[in-house]
Amino acid sequence: MEIYVTNLSQYNAGKLVGEWLELPCSEEELQDALSRVLDPDKEYFITDTEGLPFTVNEYDNIYRVNEKLEQYVALEATEALCVTFLLSEGYDWNYSIEHHEDVIVYAEQNLEDVAYSLVEDGCFGAIGTSLENYIDYSAIARDLSYDGYREREEGVFYYVG
Protein backbone atom coordinates (compact mmCIF):
# COMPACT_ATOMS: atom_id res chain seq x y z
CA MET A 1 0.00 0.00 0.00
CA GLU A 2 1.60 3.18 -1.18
CA ILE A 3 0.93 6.89 -1.54
CA TYR A 4 2.79 9.45 -3.62
CA VAL A 5 3.45 12.61 -1.63
CA THR A 6 4.21 15.78 -3.57
CA ASN A 7 5.73 19.05 -2.35
CA LEU A 8 2.94 21.59 -2.92
CA SER A 9 5.02 24.77 -3.19
CA GLN A 10 7.47 23.11 -5.61
CA TYR A 11 4.51 21.82 -7.64
CA ASN A 12 3.05 25.34 -7.81
CA ALA A 13 6.47 26.54 -9.04
CA GLY A 14 6.32 24.02 -11.89
CA LYS A 15 8.55 21.31 -10.39
CA LEU A 16 7.45 17.82 -9.46
CA VAL A 17 9.16 16.91 -6.20
CA GLY A 18 7.70 13.86 -4.55
CA GLU A 19 8.20 10.33 -3.36
CA TRP A 20 6.30 7.05 -3.09
CA LEU A 21 5.82 6.07 0.55
CA GLU A 22 5.06 2.50 1.52
CA LEU A 23 2.53 2.45 4.34
CA PRO A 24 2.03 1.60 7.08
CA CYS A 25 5.40 2.56 8.47
CA SER A 26 6.79 3.85 11.73
CA GLU A 27 6.35 7.50 12.60
CA GLU A 28 10.11 8.03 12.30
CA GLU A 29 10.17 6.55 8.79
CA LEU A 30 7.25 8.75 7.82
CA GLN A 31 8.90 11.88 9.21
CA ASP A 32 12.14 11.05 7.40
CA ALA A 33 10.33 10.57 4.08
CA LEU A 34 8.38 13.78 4.49
CA SER A 35 11.52 15.74 5.35
CA ARG A 36 13.16 14.48 2.13
CA VAL A 37 10.18 15.66 0.08
CA LEU A 38 9.23 18.83 1.92
CA ASP A 39 12.29 20.51 3.43
CA PRO A 40 12.23 23.49 3.79
CA ASP A 41 8.58 23.64 2.68
CA LYS A 42 5.85 22.29 4.90
CA GLU A 43 2.92 21.85 2.54
CA TYR A 44 2.25 18.61 0.69
CA PHE A 45 -0.52 16.87 -1.17
CA ILE A 46 -1.14 13.25 -2.06
CA THR A 47 -1.00 12.81 -5.82
CA ASP A 48 -1.56 9.08 -6.18
CA THR A 49 -2.25 5.90 -4.23
CA GLU A 50 -1.85 2.18 -4.87
CA GLY A 51 -3.43 -0.72 -3.04
CA LEU A 52 -5.26 1.22 -0.33
CA PRO A 53 -8.55 -0.24 0.92
CA PHE A 54 -10.10 3.21 1.28
CA THR A 55 -10.19 6.50 -0.59
CA VAL A 56 -7.57 9.11 0.21
CA ASN A 57 -8.04 12.75 -0.72
CA GLU A 58 -5.13 14.86 -1.83
CA TYR A 59 -4.99 16.94 1.36
CA ASP A 60 -5.61 14.14 3.87
CA ASN A 61 -3.34 13.95 6.90
CA ILE A 62 -0.63 11.41 6.06
CA TYR A 63 -0.20 10.47 9.71
CA ARG A 64 -3.92 9.65 9.94
CA VAL A 65 -3.74 7.61 6.70
CA ASN A 66 -0.79 5.71 8.16
CA GLU A 67 -2.72 5.10 11.40
CA LYS A 68 -5.71 3.73 9.48
CA LEU A 69 -3.46 1.38 7.53
CA GLU A 70 -1.85 0.15 10.76
CA GLN A 71 -5.34 -0.70 12.02
CA TYR A 72 -6.20 -2.37 8.72
CA VAL A 73 -3.14 -4.63 8.54
CA ALA A 74 -3.71 -5.71 12.15
CA LEU A 75 -7.06 -7.24 11.18
CA GLU A 76 -7.54 -10.88 10.29
CA ALA A 77 -8.10 -11.49 6.57
CA THR A 78 -11.88 -11.94 6.89
CA GLU A 79 -12.17 -8.88 9.13
CA ALA A 80 -10.28 -6.82 6.56
CA LEU A 81 -12.68 -8.03 3.85
CA CYS A 82 -15.62 -6.95 6.01
CA VAL A 83 -14.12 -3.49 6.58
CA THR A 84 -13.48 -3.12 2.85
CA PHE A 85 -17.06 -4.20 2.15
CA LEU A 86 -18.52 -1.61 4.55
CA LEU A 87 -16.32 1.10 3.04
CA SER A 88 -17.57 0.15 -0.44
CA GLU A 89 -21.13 0.45 0.86
CA GLY A 90 -20.49 4.08 1.82
CA TYR A 91 -19.74 3.81 5.53
CA ASP A 92 -16.86 5.86 6.91
CA TRP A 93 -13.65 4.44 8.31
CA ASN A 94 -14.48 4.58 12.02
CA TYR A 95 -17.91 3.04 11.51
CA SER A 96 -16.46 0.27 9.33
CA ILE A 97 -13.80 -0.60 11.93
CA GLU A 98 -16.36 -0.61 14.75
CA HIS A 99 -19.02 -2.64 12.90
CA HIS A 100 -17.06 -5.09 10.73
CA GLU A 101 -18.18 -7.92 13.04
CA ASP A 102 -21.78 -7.26 11.94
CA VAL A 103 -21.01 -8.47 8.41
CA ILE A 104 -21.78 -12.04 7.43
CA VAL A 105 -19.55 -13.49 4.74
CA TYR A 106 -20.87 -16.42 2.73
CA ALA A 107 -18.28 -18.53 0.96
CA GLU A 108 -20.72 -19.07 -1.90
CA GLN A 109 -19.84 -17.11 -5.01
CA ASN A 110 -23.32 -15.89 -5.92
CA LEU A 111 -26.69 -15.07 -4.42
CA GLU A 112 -28.44 -18.10 -5.88
CA ASP A 113 -26.01 -20.39 -4.02
CA VAL A 114 -26.75 -18.43 -0.83
CA ALA A 115 -30.48 -18.90 -1.51
CA TYR A 116 -29.96 -22.67 -1.70
CA SER A 117 -28.01 -22.60 1.58
CA LEU A 118 -30.63 -20.52 3.36
CA VAL A 119 -33.42 -22.87 2.25
CA GLU A 120 -31.39 -25.93 3.31
CA ASP A 121 -30.66 -24.31 6.70
CA GLY A 122 -34.38 -23.82 7.30
CA CYS A 123 -34.33 -20.03 7.26
CA PHE A 124 -37.67 -20.02 5.46
CA GLY A 125 -39.21 -22.70 7.66
CA ALA A 126 -39.56 -26.40 7.10
CA ILE A 127 -40.11 -27.24 3.43
CA GLY A 128 -41.12 -30.73 2.50
CA THR A 129 -39.12 -32.61 -0.09
CA SER A 130 -42.19 -32.74 -2.35
CA LEU A 131 -42.08 -28.92 -2.64
CA GLU A 132 -38.34 -28.46 -3.17
CA ASN A 133 -38.64 -28.61 -6.97
CA TYR A 134 -41.05 -25.65 -6.92
CA ILE A 135 -38.77 -23.22 -5.13
CA ASP A 136 -37.62 -20.31 -7.30
CA TYR A 137 -34.04 -19.84 -6.09
CA SER A 138 -33.32 -17.07 -8.60
CA ALA A 139 -36.28 -15.07 -7.22
CA ILE A 140 -34.98 -15.58 -3.68
CA ALA A 141 -31.54 -14.44 -4.87
CA ARG A 142 -33.06 -11.31 -6.42
CA ASP A 143 -34.90 -10.54 -3.17
CA LEU A 144 -31.70 -11.07 -1.18
CA SER A 145 -30.00 -8.42 -3.32
CA TYR A 146 -32.83 -6.01 -2.46
CA ASP A 147 -32.30 -6.82 1.22
CA GLY A 148 -28.63 -5.84 1.16
CA TYR A 149 -26.82 -9.05 0.20
CA ARG A 150 -23.95 -8.20 -2.12
CA GLU A 151 -21.99 -10.41 -4.48
CA ARG A 152 -18.29 -9.67 -4.54
CA GLU A 153 -15.26 -11.49 -5.85
CA GLU A 154 -14.51 -12.82 -2.35
CA GLY A 155 -18.03 -14.21 -1.77
CA VAL A 156 -21.40 -12.84 -0.73
CA PHE A 157 -21.59 -10.21 2.01
CA TYR A 158 -24.49 -9.14 4.20
CA TYR A 159 -24.44 -6.36 6.78
CA VAL A 160 -26.87 -7.14 9.59
CA GLY A 161 -26.49 -3.76 11.33
Rank of each mutant, 00 (worst) to 15 (best):
K68D: 03
E120Y: 06
S26Y: 12
V17H: 07
N66F: 07
P53E: 00
L144M: 09
T84W: 00
D39E: 15
D92L: 10
H100C: 13
V17C: 09
G128P: 08
N57H: 13
D32T: 14
E154P: 08
E43Y: 13
Y158M: 05
Y72N: 02
L21R: 06
L81Y: 08
D136I: 04
Y158L: 09
F85R: 04
E27Y: 15
T49P: 10
D136L: 07
E67V: 01
A13V: 08
A126Y: 14
V56W: 11
R36A: 09
L34D: 05
W20Q: 07
D143N: 09
E19W: 03
R64P: 00
G51E: 13
L87A: 01
C25P: 10
S88Y: 00
G161F: 13
L8Q: 11
E19Y: 09
Q31R: 15
D41V: 04
F85W: 07
D102M: 14
F45D: 00
E132S: 07
V56A: 11
D48A: 12
S9L: 15
T6M: 14
L87M: 00
D60A: 02
S117D: 08
Y146I: 05
E58M: 14
E98P: 03
Y95K: 11
Y134D: 07
L38C: 05
G148S: 02
E151H: 04
F85D: 06
N133A: 14
V37F: 01
E76S: 09
D48T: 01
L69D: 01
C25M: 15
G125K: 04
Y137G: 01
P24F: 02
G125E: 06
L30F: 12
D143L: 06
L131V: 07
P40Y: 11
V5H: 02
I135Q: 10
W93K: 06
D92S: 13
F124H: 02
Q109V: 05
F85C: 05
D32Y: 14
W20T: 09
E132W: 08
A77F: 10
F45L: 07
L21P: 05
S26Q: 14
I104V: 12
C25K: 15
A139L: 15
G122F: 03
V83Y: 03
L75Y: 11
Y158C: 08
Y72P: 04
F45R: 01
Q109S: 08
A107G: 09
C123T: 10
S96K: 04
L8G: 02
K68L: 08
L75G: 12
D147Q: 06
V56G: 11
Y149D: 06
D113M: 11
T55A: 14
G18P: 00
G122M: 03
E50D: 08
C25V: 15
G90K: 12
G128F: 12
I104G: 00
T55K: 15
L21H: 05
R150N: 10
Y11S: 12
Y149P: 04
T6G: 04
T78D: 15
V5F: 01
S9W: 13
S9I: 14
L30Q: 13
L86V: 02
V114H: 04
N110D: 14
S145K: 10
S35D: 14
D60R: 03
I97N: 02
Y59I: 06
E132K: 09
V156D: 10
S96I: 02
V5N: 01
G90M: 11
L34H: 07
T49V: 15
H99T: 09
D113Q: 13
L111A: 00
E58F: 13
A139C: 13
